[in-house]
Computed example of a mutant assay.
Amino acid sequence: MAALQSLRSETVAKVRRHRERHKNDRIGWLRAAVLGANDGILSTAGLVIGVASAEATRSNVLIAGVAGLVAGALSMAAGEYVSVSSQADTENAERELERKELATDAHGEHVELVNIYIGRGLDRPLAEQVADQLTAHDALGTHLRDELGLTDELQPRPLQAAFTSALCFAVGAALPLIAVLLASPTHMIWPVAIASLISLAVLGAVAARTGGAPVTLGALRVLFWSALAMAATAAIGSLFGVSTS
């Protein structure tokens, strides 16, 4: 008996130590934070480089950059709030529909649940037993999770997404503006571009690592598209600067 109790205690301790760290609980805030910071750096850097390429003064470049920071942060917040709110509305409607179906056709919903478990590899007796026990425990939660893929952990949070996006955009947008302040008034483009690309590469690497993806790939793809965007804005700024001079 003592040996059995010792074995049980050891098994429980191993289970407690073995807590898998999946990335699903990070998807919501990570997406909003990465998009916000990435857009803040890239859009402001592109705006600053484009205006500077048109031979504008540093004060004009800073005015354009600050305006871009404010407008971009508010735009990101509004966009995220509307997008995530729409997702939340859709999921709430699905919850209400599932609740009504359970109230009006409990047997049909139970059969549907059993078939889901059979499709996942269980034999019918075991699938029926699992469906019975989970339905008795939490019928609505079971159907939302196993039939529709909806869980509390991944529930949309519009205000959180909006605030996170706005804050991260503002922080990201501040980096190119700091580079403008520290650079020479006559040579702003390259310092802004280099500082922004380094920041974007670091951001891509951190986001990739946090999400469990390859770090190098995350940094390189951000660098490629960001450099392309900055080159395009620089070309447009130079073109308009020449045409208006």
Rank of each mutant, 00 (worst) to 15 (best):
A3L: 10
Q5P: 04
Q5V: 08
S6T: 14
S6W: 09
L7S: 14
R8Q: 14
T11G: 03
V12F: 02
K14N: 10
R17D: 14
H18G: 11
H22A: 11
I27G: 09
I27W: 09
G28V: 11
R31N: 10
A32V: 07
A33T: 07
I41M: 15
I41A: 01
L42H: 03
T44L: 06
L47F: 02
V48E: 05
G50N: 02
A54K: 00
S59Y: 12
A64C: 05
G65E: 01
V66T: 08
A67E: 03
G72S: 01
G72L: 02
A77I: 05
A78H: 10
A78Y: 04
E80L: 05
Y81A: 08
S86D: 08
Q87F: 00
A88V: 07
D89K: 14
D89Q: 13
T90C: 04
N92M: 14
A93C: 07
L97K: 10
K100M: 11
E101M: 13
L102E: 03
D105W: 06
E109Q: 15
E109H: 09
H110Q: 15
N115P: 03
G119V: 01
G119T: 08
R120S: 10
R120H: 15
D123F: 04
D123V: 07
R124M: 01
E128F: 11
V130C: 03
V130L: 15
Q133S: 09
L134M: 05
T135H: 12
T135Y: 09
L140T: 03
G141H: 10
H143W: 11
E147F: 05
L148M: 10
L148D: 06
L150A: 05
A161G: 08
A162I: 05
A162D: 02
F163V: 15
T164L: 03
S165H: 05
A170F: 10
A170W: 12
A170Y: 06
A170K: 09
A174L: 12
P176D: 01
L177W: 04
L177M: 14
I178E: 05
A179K: 01
V180T: 12
H187S: 09
H187G: 07
V192R: 09
V192I: 11
A193V: 12
L197Y: 10
S199F: 00
G204N: 04
V206P: 03
A207D: 04
G212E: 14
P214R: 00
R221E: 13
V222M: 07
V222H: 08
L223G: 00
L223P: 07
S226N: 10
A231H: 02
A231N: 00
A232T: 12
T233K: 01
A235Y: 01
A235D: 01
I236F: 09
I236H: 01
F240L: 15
V242L: 11
V242D: 12
S245E: 14
